[in-house]
């Protein structure tokens, strides 16, 4: 990179600049902004209301109690909320490609991924992360865990790694839209589907599905495995003891894979023009 600055640093700087512009754009319509923040909070809260309704009828779901499920929910939604805030806009890449405005991003001297991720940066998405962390906070108090240093540290590490894993999904899904501009909904199956899946205990799901989200799309490391460690429950699929601490490694692998997919997608766009 020119001027001896690394691409990630350049990317972050550009992201900050562009996101800042969008925030100011949004704030020109203050009332609408306030309304949509509330709407977002409500909408993402519905998931948890459904869980509460279920627990109004039963004491345990798949053998997990309400605080335990709330812990899963909190970890999943908080991580997802962060990823969606940072990378959610990549999901609308297809529209930019379709209407041709993607080209204008390619003539700027900053990384395209940063521009796409910061595009239409929506502060209202804070709602989901906030709602998730409120549930997480309650769950951490309510669960019956013997907290030690390791377990306390594991919570923020898990949230960050989960955010990276979900962020990778957003980026890879966005790259897929270079090939199929109308297929943004496929991405929803993995991102929104993923965070929904992780809100319930692994014991609920079929073994093949659990295998899939552990080894193929390693979502399990965003909360199932670390939560099982915190709660002293058996790991899904009888994973080895250290699996709860593998999340950072999994997150790095996911990010690298997403980066590769992104570059391949961008390359194909630039050779086909879509």
């Amino acid at each position: 990179m020119a001027w001896g600055r690394s691409r990630p640093v350049e990317g972050l700087r550009a992201y900050r600049l562009i996101a800042g512009m969008w925030i100011r754009s949004t704030l020109t319509y203050r009332a609408s902004f306030a309304l949509t923040v509330c709407g977002n909070l409500l909408l993402s809260g519905l998931d948890f209301v459904a869980i509460l309704l279920m627990f109004a009828q039963v004491d345990a779901l798949g053998g997990w109690t309400l605080p335990e499920v709330a812990l899963l929910y909190g970890l999943s939604v908080t991580a997802f909320g962060i990823a969606q805030l940072a990378f959610g806009s990549v999901a609308s890449l297809g529209g930019r490609v379709r209407d041709g405005s993607f080209d204008t991003l390619l003539v700027r001297p900053v990384p395209v991924l940063a521009q796409v991720a910061a595009d239409r940066f929506a502060l209202r998405r804070l709602g989901r992360g906030v709602q998730g962390s409120v549930v997480l906070g309650w769950a951490l108090v309510a669960v019956d865990v013997d907290w030690g240093v390791v377990k306390v540290l594991l919570v923020p590490v898990t949230v960050v790694c989960g955010a990276v894993i979900f962020g990778s999904l957003f980026v890879a899904g966005g790259a897929f839209q270079f090939l199929a501009q109308d297929a943004s909904e496929v991405q929803n199956a993995f991102t929104y589907g993923g965070t929904t899946l992780l809100q319930y205990p692994p014991t609920v799901f079929g073994r093949d599905l659990v295998r899939g989200v552990t080894f193929v799309l390693p979502l399990a490391f965003a909360n199932w495995v670390p939560a099982a460690y915190l709660l002293g429950r058996p790991y899904p699929l009888g994973l080895p003891e250290g699996a709860a601490f593998a999340a950072p490694l999994v997150a790095v692998v996911c990010a690298a894979a997403a980066g590769a997919v992104w570059r391949a997608g961008l390359r194909s766009y630039r050779s086909t023009g879509s």
Partner: peptide, 30 residues
């Protein structure tokens, strides 16, 4: 591409690169 971007200017007639809801000067500051 990014290196060349510093040395070229592009105006696409049908497509503005300016920030729609913000004052013109804000786009220049960016």
């Amino acid at each position: 591409r990014t290196r060349l971007a510093h040395r070229m200017g592009v105006v696409l007639g049908q497509r503005t690169t300016l920030w729609w809801d913000l004052p013109l000067i804000d786009s220049y500051r960016l």
